Amino acid sequence: TRVETATETAWISLVTALHLVLGLNAVLGLLLLRWQFPAHYRRLRHALW
């Protein structure tokens, strides 16, 4: 059971790390998009709101 718990903890930390990386990538991607295409982003925002 100790090995199972260790594997579980490893999986949880792995999934958490993946989520963090994906979240960071999403934020960075959005920031890059805003920086690269400000006009396009503004138009998109007007369409959404």
Rank of each mutant, 00 (worst) to 15 (best):
S13H: 07
H46R: 10
T9I: 12
V15G: 01
Y41F: 15
L24P: 08
L32R: 06
H46C: 07
A6I: 04
H19M: 13
H40K: 01
A6H: 04
H46W: 07
L14Y: 07
W11R: 08
A39V: 12
R43D: 02
T7L: 08
R42F: 07
Y41K: 03
I12W: 01
L22R: 07
P38C: 06
L14H: 08
Y41L: 11
L32H: 01
T5F: 08
Q36T: 14
L18A: 07
L33R: 02
L28S: 04
V3T: 08
T9V: 13
F37L: 06
G29V: 15
A26P: 05
L48G: 08
L48C: 13
R43S: 08
L44K: 06
R45H: 00
E8K: 05
Y41P: 03
H19T: 15
E4A: 13
V3K: 06
F37S: 07
L14T: 12
R34T: 01
H40D: 00
L22M: 15
F37R: 06
V15I: 12
L24F: 12
L20A: 11
L18R: 05
L44P: 08
R2E: 13
W49S: 02
T7C: 04
A6C: 11
A10S: 10
W49G: 01
H40M: 12
H40Q: 12
L18P: 10
R45K: 14
T5G: 07
W35L: 15
L28M: 13
T1R: 11
L30R: 02
T9D: 08
T7Y: 11
W49Q: 00
H46A: 05
T9Q: 09
T5N: 03
T9C: 10
A10F: 07
V21M: 14
L22F: 06
R34Y: 10
L14G: 03
E4P: 01
Q36H: 15
A10W: 12
W49E: 01
T16D: 10
L33C: 14
T16V: 14
T9N: 01
L24I: 12
V21A: 15
E4I: 14
L18G: 01
G29P: 04
W11V: 11
I12Y: 10
R2V: 15
W11T: 03
Q36A: 15
L31Q: 04
H46K: 07
A17C: 14
L14M: 14
A26I: 14
L22W: 00
L32E: 03
V3R: 01
L48N: 00
S13T: 14
T7Q: 11
L32V: 13
R34D: 10
A47M: 12
W35D: 04
G23W: 08
A10D: 06
W35N: 15
A39Q: 12
L48D: 00
T16Y: 08
W35I: 15
T1E: 11
V21F: 10
H19K: 04
L22V: 14
A6E: 07
A47E: 04
W49K: 04
L44E: 00
T7N: 11
A39W: 09
A17G: 07
R34G: 08
A39N: 14
R43H: 10
R45V: 10
L18F: 12
W49Y: 01
H46N: 11
P38N: 13
L32I: 11
R34C: 06
R45Y: 04
T16G: 05
N25P: 09
A17K: 00
E8C: 02
L31T: 10
I12S: 09
A17E: 02
L28A: 06
L14A: 08
S13A: 15
N25A: 03
T5E: 10
L33W: 03
T16M: 09
R43K: 13
T5L: 10
L24N: 04
T5M: 04
V15S: 05
H46V: 09
T1W: 03
S13R: 07
R45F: 01
R42C: 04
S13L: 14
L20P: 01
T7H: 13
T9W: 14
T1F: 12
W11P: 03
L28V: 07
T5C: 08
L33Y: 09
I12E: 09
R45L: 09
L28H: 10
L32A: 03
R42M: 13
Y41E: 01
L28F: 12
F37A: 02
R45N: 09
H19Q: 04
R42I: 09
L44M: 10
V15T: 04
F37K: 00
H40S: 09
T5D: 00
L24M: 14
W35Y: 15
L31M: 14
L28Y: 09
A10M: 00
H40P: 09
V27C: 11
E8M: 05
A6Y: 07
E8G: 03
L24H: 02
A26C: 14
L32F: 03
W49F: 09
L24A: 12
Q36Y: 15
A39S: 13
T7K: 11
T7D: 01
L24T: 07
R45I: 05
I12F: 07
L20Q: 03
L48Q: 10
L14P: 00
H40V: 09
P38S: 08
L18Q: 08
R42K: 11
G23N: 02
V27E: 06
A47D: 00
V3P: 06
R2T: 15
P38D: 12
G29M: 15
A6M: 06
L33H: 06
A39L: 12
V27I: 14
V3E: 06
I12L: 09
R34L: 08
I12K: 09
L18H: 06
W49V: 01
P38R: 13
L30G: 09
A47I: 09
H46T: 13
L32C: 08
N25G: 09
T1V: 14
W49H: 00
G29T: 15
L31E: 03
A6G: 14
E8W: 06
R45D: 00
L24K: 01
L18C: 00
A10K: 05
L18S: 06
H19S: 15
T1L: 13
R43C: 00
L48R: 00
L28P: 04
W11Y: 15
E8F: 02
T16R: 06
H19Y: 15
H40Y: 08
R42W: 04
W35T: 14
Q36G: 13
W35E: 10
A39D: 15
R43G: 02
V21H: 07
L14S: 02
T5H: 01
H46D: 09
P38V: 07
L31V: 08
L30W: 03
H19P: 00
N25C: 01
A17Q: 00
T1Q: 15
L20W: 00
N25D: 08
I12Q: 05
R42H: 11
R45T: 09
T7R: 08
R34V: 09
L14E: 00
W11G: 05
S13P: 06
L44G: 00
A47N: 00
R45Q: 08
L18I: 02
R42A: 13
L31N: 05
V27S: 04
E8Q: 02
L33A: 04
A26T: 08
A17N: 04
V27F: 11
L20Y: 08
A47L: 13
T7G: 10
T1I: 13
F37Y: 13
L14W: 07
R42N: 12
T5W: 00
V21G: 14
R42E: 13
A17W: 00
V21S: 14
T16Q: 07
L28I: 05
E4G: 03
T7P: 15
Y41Q: 05
V3C: 03
L30I: 10
G23A: 15
T9H: 10
W11A: 02
L48K: 02
I12V: 13
A17T: 06
L48V: 13
H19R: 10
L33E: 01
T16P: 03
V15K: 05
T7S: 15
G29D: 02
P38H: 10
N25Y: 08
H40W: 13
L24S: 05
T1A: 11
H19E: 05
A26S: 07
T16F: 04
E4D: 12
I12M: 10
W35C: 11
R43E: 05
A39K: 07
V15N: 03
W35P: 05
I12D: 00
W35V: 14
L22N: 01
R34H: 05
G29K: 03
A10Y: 03
L14Q: 02
G29Y: 01
R42G: 11
N25Q: 07
W11H: 07
T16S: 07
F37Q: 00
T7E: 07
H46G: 06
L24W: 07
L14F: 05
E4V: 14
H19N: 13
N25H: 07
V21N: 05
H40I: 08
R45A: 06
S13G: 14
T7W: 13
E8R: 04
L48P: 04
W49L: 06
L44R: 00
G29I: 15
L32W: 12
R43P: 10
H46P: 11
L30C: 13
H19C: 15
A26Q: 07
T16A: 08
L20T: 09
L48T: 03
A17H: 00
L20M: 14
I12A: 06
T1G: 07
A39P: 02
Y41R: 02
H40F: 11
T9G: 13
R2S: 13
Q36I: 12
F37P: 04
G29F: 15
H46I: 09
G23E: 01
V21I: 05
V3S: 04
A6T: 04
L18T: 00
T9P: 15
R2F: 12
L31H: 02
N25T: 05
L24G: 06
T1C: 11
Q36R: 15
L28C: 13
R42V: 04
V15R: 01
Q36L: 12
V21E: 10
N25E: 01
L28N: 04
E4S: 10
V27Q: 02
F37W: 00
R2Y: 12
P38M: 08
A10V: 05
F37H: 01
A17F: 09
R43I: 09
G23F: 13
R45P: 02
H19D: 12
A26H: 00
L33F: 12
R42S: 11
A10T: 06
T16I: 10
A39C: 06
E8V: 07
E4M: 07
R42D: 11
T9F: 10
A39G: 13
R2H: 14
T16C: 11
V27H: 08
G23P: 00
G29R: 08
L18D: 00
T9E: 09
F37D: 02
G29C: 15
R43M: 05
V21D: 03
R34F: 10
A39I: 10
A47K: 07
T5Y: 08
L31P: 10
